[in-house]
C-alpha cells in the first residue's frame, strides 16, 4: 500500500515514531510494528488482518510525539484516551485508514492451524486452499461496527467505507453470539454459566494488557495486596472477581474494540459482559465511549433531572 507508506514517511518528518503494522513473513498476516525511520516505513501494510488496536500503546508512550495508524474502531479508543488524559491530541498524528472489516485471524488459525494461508478475496475467503464463508471469520467487533472511518484523523489513507463496516453483516444491531442464550437463563443458571466460563481462566491478564482503556498498566488494583480486592488464586471465583473489577473500571470507557475477547487464550466471552455494560450505559446515559472528544465520561458527572433511578417511591 504505497499510499500508506508515503503517508507514514511524511508523518515521520513530524513525529518520533509511527505505530502501524507490518507483514509477518512466517504467517503472512499483519503484526503490530513501530516505524522510526522512512526506511522502516517501507514495510508498512494495511489489510483485513490488521486486527490489533494499536491505541493500547499510547499511554505508555505519553509525552512523545507519535503517529498512529487507526481504523474507525481504533480511533474511538484514541478519542477516549484523549478524554482521559492518557494521550495528548497535539502530540498525536492520527493516520486514518478506510476499513472494510477485519478478520479474526486467531479463530482461523485455531480452526485450520496456525499460519494457514489466508487469501482474502474481499467477498470470500480461501483458507489453505479451502473456501470459507467470510462472515464466519469476521472479527466480532465488526458486527457491531459504529464507524468504519475514523472520527478523528490528521491524514486519511485508502477508500472511505462511508459508514459502518458492519453493514456488510447487519450493522451494529447484531448482538454477541451468546447474548440470546444468556437472556434465556434463569439467575442461578447464569451464575453457573459464568462460573463454568471463568473456571478456564489462567489469569494471564491478556484481557487487561491488550485493552487500551486499562491504562493503569503496571499497577493494577486487581493484584494489590492491600486492599485485597481479589485473592491471588487461579480459580473461577477470583477470576470472575477480577473480571468484574475490570468491567466496573471500564464503565463509560470501553469502546467495544473486542481486544479482550480476542486475546483471551481460553475463549472466555468477555465481550458479552462489556457489550451488556455498554448497552446499559447507552440506555441510561445516552453515552457511547469514543463518540466525541468533547464528551464528558458518564461516571464522572451526573444529571439531577434525568438520573431518576431509585427515586420512584
Amino acid at each position: 500500500m504505497a499510499d500508506l507508506v508515503t503517508t507514514i514517511k511524511q508523518t515521520l518528518k513530524d513525529v518520533e515514531l509511527v505505530l502501524g503494522w507490518v507483514r509477518d513473513p512466517a504467517t503472512g498476516v499483519a503484526a503490530p510494528a513501530r516505524f522510526h525511520t522512512e526506511e522502516e516505513a517501507e514495510a508498512a501494510v494495511f489489510d483485513s488482518t490488521c486486527v490489533h488496536n494499536l491505541a493500547v500503546h499510547l499511554p505508555r508512550l505519553k509525552g512523545r510525539r507519535l503517529g498512529i495508524v487507526a481504523k474507525g474502531c481504533d480511533a474511538r479508543s484514541v478519542v477516549e484516551l484523549i478524554i482521559e488524559h492518557e494521550a495528548e491530541r497535539e502530540d498525536l498524528k492520527v493516520i486514518g485508514v478506510g476499513c472494510g472489516s477485519i478478520l479474526d485471524v486467531k479463530k482461523i488459525w485455531r480452526r485450520f492451524g496456525y499460519g494457514v494461508e489466508i487469501d482474502d478475496r474481499g467477498d470470500s475467503l480461501e483458507l489453505g486452499g479451502e473456501r470459507g464463508p467470510r462472515e464466519d471469520f469476521l472479527a466480532r467487533k465488526c458486527h457491531g461496527c459504529l464507524e468504519a472511518d475514523p472520527d478523528i484523523y490528521d491524514l486519511f489513507v485508502g477508500e472511505s467505507a462511508g459508514g459502518p463496516a458492519g453493514e456488510i453483516s447487519g450493522g451494529r444491531e447484531e448482538p454477541h453470539p451468546l447474548s440470546a442464550m444468556l437472556e434465556d437463563l434463569a439467575p442461578a443458571e447464569r451464575r453457573a454459566f459464568w462460573r463454568e466460563q471463568f473456571s478456564r481462566c489462567i489469569r494471564c491478564y491478556a484481557c487487561r494488557e491488550v485493552c487500551p482503556m486499562c491504562f493503569c498498566r503496571d499497577i493494577c488494583i486487581m493484584q494489590t495486596q492491600v486492599p485485597h480486592w481479589a485473592g491471588g488464586e487461579v480459580n473461577a471465583r477470583e477470576s470472575e472477581m477480577i473480571q468484574h473489577i475490570r468491567v466496573s473500571h471500564l464503565a463509560g470507557r470501553c469502546t467495544g474494540c473486542g481486544e479482550c475477547e480476542r486475546a483471551c487464550p481460553v475463549g472466555i466471552p468477555l465481550m458479552l459482559l462489556m457489550d451488556e455494560q455498554n448497552r446499559a450505559i447507552e440506555d441510561m446515559f445516552g453515552y457511547r465511549a469514543g463518540d466525541s472528544l468533547r464528551a464528558r465520561p458518564p461516571m464522572q458527572t451526573f444529571s439531577i433531572e434525568k438520573d431518576l433511578w431509585g427515586d420512584e417511591e
Binding site: 510494528a33 513501530r34 493500547v56 489462567i202 489469569r203 494471564c204 491478564y205 491478556a206 494488557e209 503496571d218
Partner: peptide, 10 residues
Amino acid sequence: RCVSCGYCTY
C-alpha cells in the same frame, strides 16, 4: 509490540 501479558509464560 509486546503488551506484557502473562500468556506466553502461563
